[in-house]
Amino acid sequence: MTSPLPASARLAWWGTAWLAGHVVTDLLLDEVVGDDVTHAVAGLAGLGLGGSEDVSETLLGGLARLRAEGVASFGAAFPVEGDPVGLGGPPDLNHAAIEAGEAVVVLLHDGSAVGLVPERVGPTTTWVAHRGARRQLPDVGEADRGLRSALLQSADALAALDVARWRPEVADRLTDLRHRDPLAAPPGVPERCVSLAARALHALEVVDLALEDDGGALSLHEITRREQAILPLGSAARRALVAACSPEVWPPA
């Protein structure tokens, strides 16, 4: 079954479990690659990590090279234009990650960081390495409270817009939070973070449904009101997903 988690979330969770010795390499690769044919890593040599030739290598080869350099953690980012949540720069990484909508920030024990941005072509994904920087992250508790608050506010705002009439499936999903599908997570991911990630993905699904094009049936004023009602939920959901997929801010075991 295909995981509902974005690729960067899968690499953050399963890469962290692999570093801690909770899962074997084969399971790491299976979970990260998912239904794709293959994943590769490119650009590490250009950052001074490993050999002199800057060529693409297997996912396992790239992760092994990073581990040899002293990886402290794998964490995810889910930025959009104007809201680079989960990123700390520099601009090259931010631009690539915003273009992709996601990235993994790899922190090394020496204090440096590497950003891995997935570039997908058909059934293959190449994680392109960029120089990274440490980032400021939302606390798990803060992100959780922010998501709960945004859900309530968006539900009220959409009700005022009569969401059940123009998007009955959005109204259904908003009231179906208790019946979301559970996420499969590796050992070591706090249960609170697994739950938070599931609710964040659910909220992002609601946002996508609410913003679907109606084929020109709405006026500009109506579109603006809908965006004002739902976009804050998308922002809160992405912050929640970043916190749930960033071991730097996980609560102590």
Rank of each mutant, 00 (worst) to 15 (best):
M1D: 15
T2G: 12
L5W: 00
P6F: 00
P6D: 02
A7N: 07
A9Y: 00
R10Y: 00
L11P: 00
A12S: 11
A12D: 03
W13S: 06
W13R: 06
G15W: 01
G15P: 01
T16P: 06
A17M: 02
A17V: 06
W18A: 12
G21Y: 07
V23W: 04
V24E: 15
D26V: 12
D26L: 10
E31P: 04
G34S: 11
D36R: 15
V37G: 04
A45F: 03
G46K: 02
L47N: 02
L47M: 07
L47T: 00
G48N: 00
G48K: 00
L49P: 04
G50E: 01
G51D: 10
G51N: 04
S52K: 05
E53V: 08
D54A: 04
V55F: 11
S56M: 08
L60W: 11
G62E: 03
G62D: 03
R67E: 14
G75C: 04
A76Q: 08
F78W: 10
F78I: 01
P79T: 03
V80M: 09
G82A: 11
G82N: 12
P84A: 08
V85A: 07
V85Q: 08
G86Q: 05
G89F: 03
P90H: 09
P91G: 07
P91K: 00
D92I: 00
L93M: 07
N94L: 10
H95T: 15
A96L: 03
E99V: 09
E99K: 14
A100F: 08
V104K: 12
V105G: 12
L108A: 02
H109M: 10
D110I: 05
D110W: 00
G111R: 01
G111Q: 02
S112G: 14
A113F: 09
A113P: 15
V114C: 11
V117K: 13
R120I: 06
V121T: 15
G122Q: 11
G122W: 08
P123G: 00
R131C: 09
G132A: 04
V140P: 01
V140M: 03
G141L: 01
G141N: 09
S149L: 14
A150K: 07
L152N: 13
A155Q: 14
A155E: 14
D156S: 11
A157T: 06
V163C: 06
V163F: 02
R165Q: 10
P168E: 01
E169M: 04
E169L: 10
V170G: 08
L177W: 12
H179Q: 12
R180W: 09
P182K: 03
P182L: 08
L183I: 01
A184R: 10
A184V: 14
A185C: 11
P190F: 01
S195M: 08
A198G: 15
A198W: 02
R199Y: 15
A200K: 03
E205P: 13
L209K: 06
L209G: 12
E212R: 13
D214C: 08
A217N: 12
A217E: 14
S219G: 15
L220A: 15
H221P: 05
E222D: 13
I223Q: 14
T224N: 11
T224C: 11
R225N: 05
R226K: 12
R226D: 03
R226Y: 05
I230N: 07
S235Q: 08
A236N: 02
V242Y: 02
P247W: 01
P247V: 02
E248K: 05
P251N: 01
A253W: 11
A253K: 07
